[in-house]
Design a protein around this nucleic acid. Structure first.
Lengths: 136, 136
DNA sequence: ATTTTATTCGTAATCATTATTATTTCGAGA
DNA sequence: TCTCGAAATAATAATGATTACGAATAAAAT
């Protein structure tokens, strides 16, 4: 996803186009990997010294809700990356060192055969963690 | 695993048998499911009103290191349960309303057949989200 | 330009977890 | 049984990530 597509998506939902929001998106467009809130804050502070965690988290969650970003948890911290909306449903291997990912086409929901009668399934998460070839 | 086996295991390693440690183990033996540190603390405080988080975490990690407990992360909190021998590795359906979980015996890692050569796999997560029968 | 409303800033609170230090308890050996 | 040193605990404070809040600001609608 590119910057303009993401901004367009926000505009359609009635969200305002702010400099901070733009800057956050830029970071994700540039770096195709999972990034921690802390790193986002640090990078944004170069342009907006007064930016607060409130702004960072509010936007990260907003963008995640709007399915522009995807979230996961690495080492006790939430990390975010640009969504893969166009590429169809898939999962990821995630490097716990650098945050880079590799797509996994296999989806466990296709193979699962458990008795979940009465359970209303809305979503699922399947992720493999470890070290990528570069980091291992 | 039963209480005596676990205590025996600790004794062999030279760890002392304390009332708190015993009580923590009892809880896990009685409830065969993942439990958060907070819940352990609450239950222990009925017998030992002054027990501190330090004691809880120190023992949970000790027991995990000694492979008596297993740890995982659910909803941003570390959870622990008795190690294999009773139930084995499994995953969860998690209700997004009430937070209750249901065990899923199926593990996608057994069925996956992707090319991950060069990737050092350390861990994985498979969770299904939705509404449990009570909440749906 | 004015108004409306979302968004941000600055700061404080919260929550889980970890660390510190003095005190207590366990249990091995006398 | 008693004593003693090591281990464990209690009480509390610190940390780090995340969330919350009121006042101020900025985007966009009229």
């Amino acid at each position: 996803m590119n910057l303009e597509t993401a901004l367009q998506k926000l505009k359609e939902k009635g969200y305002k186009r702010t400099r901070q929001r733009e800057r956050i998106l830029e970071i994700f467009v540039k770096q195709d990997q999972y990034i921690a809130a802390k790193s986002i804050l640090k990078e944004i502070q170069e342009d907006f010294p007064g930016v607060s965690y409130d702004t960072i988290y509010r936007n990260l969650y907003l963008l995640t809700d709007e399915e522009i970003l995807e979230a996961t948890e690495l080492g006790g911290e939430k990390h975010f990356r640009l969504g893969c909306g166009t590429q169809g449903h898939h999962h990821h291997f995630i490097c716990t060192d650098c945050g880079k990912t590799k797509s996994i086409e296999f989806c466990p929901m296709e193979s699962i055969n458990e008795n979940l009668k009465g359970y209303d399934i809305e979503n699922h998460k399947f992720e493999i963690y470890g070290k990528c070839p570069v980091c291992s």
